[in-house]
Amino acid sequence: MIHLLAQEVVEAPKTYGSWPDYVVIIVYMLVILGFGSFFGRFAKSTRDFFFSGSKFSWWLIGMSMVATGVGSHSFVKYAQKGYEHGMSSGMSYMNDWFFIPLFMFGWLPIIYFSRVRSIPEYFQRRFGTVARFLAVFLILQYMVGYIGFNLFTLGTVAHQVLGIDIWVAIVAIAVVCGVYVTAGGQTAVIFTDLAQGFMLLIGGLLLFALGLDRLALDGAITDGIAALWTNLSLAERLPFAHFNEPQSFNFIGVFWQDGVAGSLMFLFISQGLMMRFLAAKSVNEGRKAILFNTLFILPISMIVVGNAGWLGNAMVDTGAVDAPEEARDIFVVVAELACGPGVFGFVLAALSAALMSTIDTYTNATAALFIYDVYQPYIKRGAPDRHYMRSARIASAVIAVVGLGIGLYFMTFGTDLYKIHGMFQSFVTPPIVVAVLLGAFWRRFTPAGAVAAMLGGMLCIWLSKVFPGVVAPFAHGVVPDGETGQYMYMTALYGLVCSAFIGVTVSLFTKPKTPEQIAGLWVGTMDFGMKRFKGGKPNHAVGKKVKANITITSDGTTGPTIALSFDEHQAMFPDSDAPAERKPAPFDEHGQPKPEYSIVRFSTDDLQRMKAEEGDLLYVSDARWWLGGLRSSHCRAGKPHDRNGVVMMTDEAFELASFVKGRPARVEKLL
């Protein structure tokens, strides 16, 4: 054994990838660029551009979330933690379930049925203009900064891994993401993130398999697993780190910062994730997506991002490789040792996938925030949708350029501003999370309470930076940093408690909005929300899906209309036979266009199988499941006909859903 090991000792790699690796990465980026840009043809309205027409299946949403959840720094950061602390490196990936009930049955139906398009818009409707202004000011700054922050991070990672200049990597990724996000909007983001999700899972698991094979020497892969496991001490094999030490990485700090504050941020105030869920075809599909992601994908992601560190730990201990000079280099050391030319490039392409998928999501989300919370309400009100659609594309391009500028600024003028952005995140997150949570789950929470929670919470967190001792009662025995005196993780718990205390106290002494004003915006009014979303009483009977051939006719069918039936549509628009003559939908009390659905017709038997009635909301999609809803539309059931297996719709409805002639449709009742 010792003789074998001696043969395996190699120098820690000092060189970077070879030309096949560069070819793999460049080809991958070009494929993603073309793939993403292709989806521009499916964005026919502003709502399509930002929410993909709310028509996608759970697996598409769930898989695309994989890439969004694994950030630009995840591979390097968690590999380093795995190398230093063992398998507890991934504990932040497996502590998200505790808030899922509030998300599945609270926040998700609230945002879906109330049709809010951004967090600040929710603040406007729940708390009023002051809260919205505060939220826009804070979130917009944070998000644009975050794009630059990620671009800078990826530049440093690319430099570290490939040896290329930081600015080359920053410009390349910003251009690739900027082009396909501007062309295809949310649909491009979802489909490219689907590809990137597969890419980073396969790349990470491939690295794990090759690394285990390397550890196994001439044995089976199970020998590699045994070698990895026996190399780790008991503390390194456990799923959690030590309770409260060292201060740089301990269980209690990670639990409160990632498991509580991070989970709340991810589920409740991430504009990018919110838009992803609003792109689902129904609330149930959103629930399936979060279930799939949290129960199955996050544990796999934990292995994907952390395994290089565990392997590196075993390889260094067994002498298979020299210890790297810096622990953060362990990912590239293991990747290059375990993978041959080309395969190393594939693993690096997986790393690029993690980088691009975060940036594309934030670019699209920031553009939505700008259009819906700044441009539409304050700069250009009441313009036609095609104007906002064009503005959305321009905003996406401008935001990509601004993010690029910030990334290059971080590169040129050092990392002080970079650190400031990290600190800004710790200031902003707890107060906004508290305002959203109390707004969604406590009817008595007042507009004054929300503003006080945000401003007071930020003030308290600022105080903790000046007087770190105020965090000590929340520290669970964690000692502050020796140099700065700051508590690295526990400020999150302190910020949440302070913000909640201020918000609740102020609310108890101020006047809440009336129940009518907040109907549909807090958890106790979901039945009202569903009724308003549908435009009639919800139908909760569970029916079956039916398959139907599409027939184009205007007999009893309409294009998109706010009417609940064909007769009502005729009464509303007696002179509008041609689609082009349709009047724009009137606005509701929140200044949003009222929901419009095409009226389509099924046979009486088909409606009975779906347990649907005239006026119910249906989801009609191309029967090919693997399209994930790309060719689909929400429709309203019209008067029944007598031809089983046939769905009648207008030419306009057919075109809007991007259906293909001759292809059958699959139909299900939603509400």
Partner: peptide, 12 residues
């Protein structure tokens, strides 16, 4: 301790 703390506090 971490296991007992996470699943004790773990809100649900």
């Amino acid at each position: 301790w971490p296991y007992l703390y996470q699943y004790g506090i773990g809100i649900f």
